[in-house]
Simulated assay, not measured.
Amino acid sequence: MATLKETAGRWGNMTVRYDGLTVEWLGYATARVAAVDGPTVYTDPGRYGVLDDYWTRDGDLVLVTHDHHYDPEGIRSVADPGATLVIYEAVDPDRIDRDVESVESLSDDYDVIRVDDEAEFEVELDDGTVTVWTVPTYNDPEGPRADADGTVPHPEGFGCGFLFSIGDRTAFWPGDGDALDGFAELDVDLFLANIGGGDIVSDRHESADLAEGMAPELVVPIHYDTFDALEADGEAFAGDVASRSIPAALDERSVNR
């Protein structure tokens, strides 16, 4: 059985410790997952002030799922000078309605890997090897976040989800979309659950159902409450998951609201 505990971490937040890993939610979609004496991985760093004054720059591997989470300033605030950035192939700074640095410019300073949504590869890092898999993630055009004509905020092909091996565990960050049925077939130890809901992504009920089907050893909810459209009850989600005999842990103190 996995063991976990929560202890006070840097910046005053609560750090979840789980079988040789530390897990911190830094706000919005940014999670820091680090192995003891091993690599440190960040998911979708930045936006909405969540990394203001955060310049740790200890990330060996940075994963970016789609345009909405592409924030070069956030990437630079977490990435080690020798970091590898894995960026979904459809991320297009020219299409983003913000003034952002190009991917080509980032590649001048970091190793950048562009991926589709069916990739599997190993990243050799100074602190160890991380295996990365990508999966399609999207809002179902016939699902609860679709308009009458099937228009959705995250259509198929717009973004991807990431699985990554770290330490002896595999973590899963699905990115933005619905809690797709196929996710339950993945072999996942740590599920970074997207619970913001609304008209954007899976809500806490859908992610709890997914967690039950997936049966990970630990669930940590992220991507909620950063702004009003993502308001969700993390404690209720954790209780719902725990009632299904799946350990859940909250890391809410670090969120910049």
Rank of each mutant, 00 (worst) to 15 (best):
A2R: 14
A2M: 11
A2Y: 10
A2T: 14
T3N: 14
W11E: 11
G12P: 01
N13G: 15
N13E: 15
N13M: 15
M14P: 05
M14N: 09
T15I: 07
R17I: 15
Y18T: 05
Y18Q: 00
G20M: 08
L21C: 07
L26C: 11
A31Q: 08
V33Q: 07
V33W: 06
V36C: 13
D37K: 13
Y42N: 08
T43N: 02
D44C: 03
D44G: 03
R47G: 05
R47T: 13
Y48S: 14
D52L: 11
W55R: 15
T56D: 14
V62L: 09
V64L: 02
D67T: 00
H68I: 13
H69N: 14
Y70P: 11
E73A: 12
G74R: 15
I75G: 05
I75S: 09
I75R: 07
S77I: 06
V78M: 05
D80P: 12
A83I: 02
V86N: 05
V86F: 05
P93C: 00
P93F: 03
R95S: 04
I96L: 04
D97E: 12
S102F: 00
V103P: 06
E104W: 00
Y110H: 07
V112G: 12
I113M: 10
E120Y: 05
E124V: 09
E124G: 07
L125E: 09
D127H: 13
T129A: 06
W133P: 05
P136G: 02
P136A: 11
T137A: 06
Y138D: 02
N139L: 02
N139A: 04
D140H: 05
G143S: 10
P144L: 04
P144E: 01
A146S: 09
A146E: 07
A148M: 10
A148T: 12
D149H: 00
T151K: 06
H154G: 02
E156D: 06
F158P: 08
F158R: 13
G161L: 01
L163C: 03
L163V: 01
F164Q: 09
D168S: 06
T170V: 12
A171T: 02
F172H: 05
G175Y: 06
D176K: 09
D178H: 05
G182D: 10
E185H: 11
L190S: 01
L190F: 01
I195L: 01
G197Y: 01
D199M: 05
V201C: 06
S202R: 07
S202P: 00
D203I: 02
D203P: 04
D203Q: 02
R204M: 09
H205I: 13
S207W: 02
A208H: 11
D209S: 10
D209V: 12
G213C: 10
M214K: 05
A215W: 04
E217H: 12
D228S: 14
A229P: 07
L230E: 09
A232E: 12
G234H: 05
E235L: 03
A236D: 03
F237Q: 00
G239R: 14
A242C: 04
I246C: 08
I246F: 05
P247N: 04
L250V: 08
D251C: 13
S254K: 08
V255N: 08
N256F: 15
